[in-house]
């Protein structure tokens, strides 16, 4: 477990608030990320995700609370500390007149990484063909890859990725997350922000949902699902003449709706799900077919966006 100094913790935020010109952008955020963990920040535009990252990168100072990153205050972190961190800003920009290879070499020198390592990284992000071209000719996807390449320089222990896949097509998006996953396999802690839960399904160890500068929920995806308490939808096709009996039997277990003579829809909570299934199987031949629809990720997201009260 955590030793003195918290060496098992990569990021520790305690009661962090940030005001810009009197307006609170981040309010009372507590967040702890373990080493090697893939943490994802989900939230709407202006929820404070980018500000939170800037605080963790030491680009701006908290108005209240404390920020610890890799056991140091990021605002005063030593150079060695910064070398261990990779950052991909939202819609990353580079000097257009430079070639891809030159851009990466420049950042490598600044980070004290041997320039000969750049070729391998460019290959890893799939830019080896375009390395000799000016960045101004790059597509959005290629710029993002170059952005990830610079974040990967020097095998960082901690990666900050601010909406890394916004504006990428689904194939590129998947490749991008595959790359990030391969990094986390080698022990890199990552903090990724995104708009969409769908995108990060299976890509996150834990998810923190932000709304108006507050983290309204934080946990694994299944914990968030449970916590949201959204109903599961069960649709049954019922044999001729049994509809009334089936409806009567199942009505106490959830909210029941008759679709037509042969169909019944029932929404029930996760906790009564198994009781419902047993009851259905007891009904025997009367139930001809069954579809189970768990709450969609978008529904979960919307639930937290609409219902969550600021802490």
């Amino acid at each position: 477990m955590a030793e003195a100094g918290g060496t098992q913790t990569a990021i520790e935020l305690a009661g962090v608030s940030k005001h810009y010109a009197g307006k609170a952008v981040v309010r009372g955020v507590d967040l702890s990320v373990r080493r090697g963990e893939r943490m994802v920040l989900i939230g709407h535009n202006g929820a404070g995700k980018t500000t939170l990252m800037k605080l963790m990168l030491g680009l701006t100072h908290p108005s209240r609370g404390s920020v610890r990153v890799l056991d140091a205050d990021p605002a005063t972190a030593a150079a060695a500390q910064r070398r261990a961190i990779g950052y991909l800003p939202e819609s990353v920009a580079f000097h257009g007149a430079m070639k891809g290879r030159e851009v990466l070499a420049f950042y490598a020198r600044l980070k004290g990484v041997p320039v000969r390592e750049c070729a391998g990284i460019l290959e890893r992000v799939g830019l080896e063909q375009a390395a000799g071209r000016r960045v101004s000719t790059y597509s959005k996807g290629m710029r993002q890859r170059l952005g990830l390449a610079q974040a990967m320089l020097g095998q960082p222990r901690l990666l900050f990725l601010d909406e890394p896949t916004s504006g990428l097509d689904p194939t590129l998006r998947r490749q991008f997350y595959d790359l990030i996953d391969s990094l986390s396999l080698s022990g890199t802690t990552s903090l990724t922000s995104s708009h969409s839960l769908n995108e990060v399904e299976g890509r996150a160890d834990r998810i923190a949902i932000m709304k108006n500068g507050v983290i309204v929920a934080c946990g694994t995806l299944s914990a968030l699902m449970r916590q949201a308490g959204l109903p599961i939808m069960v649709r049954l096709r019922i044999a001729d003449g049994h509809t009334a009996r089936v409806a009567e039997q199942l009505a106490p277990l959830g909210e029941l709706r008759r679709v037509n003579d042969h169909g019944v829809e029932l929404s029930c909570l996760g906790t009564t799900k198994m009781i419902l299934f047993r009851r259905i199987s007891e009904l025997g031949e009367a139930v001809e077919d069954m579809d189970v629809m768990p709450p969609r990720l978008d529904d979960i997201y919307n639930h937290y966006m609409e219902n969550a009260q600021p802490q």
Binding site: G58, L59, S91, H95
Partner: peptide, 13 residues
């Protein structure tokens, strides 16, 4: 304005 400063300042500079 280009957004390159943000990235630069996260480097050991």
């Amino acid at each position: 304005e280009r957004g390159t400063m943000l990235l630069l300042l996260t480097y050991p500079v």
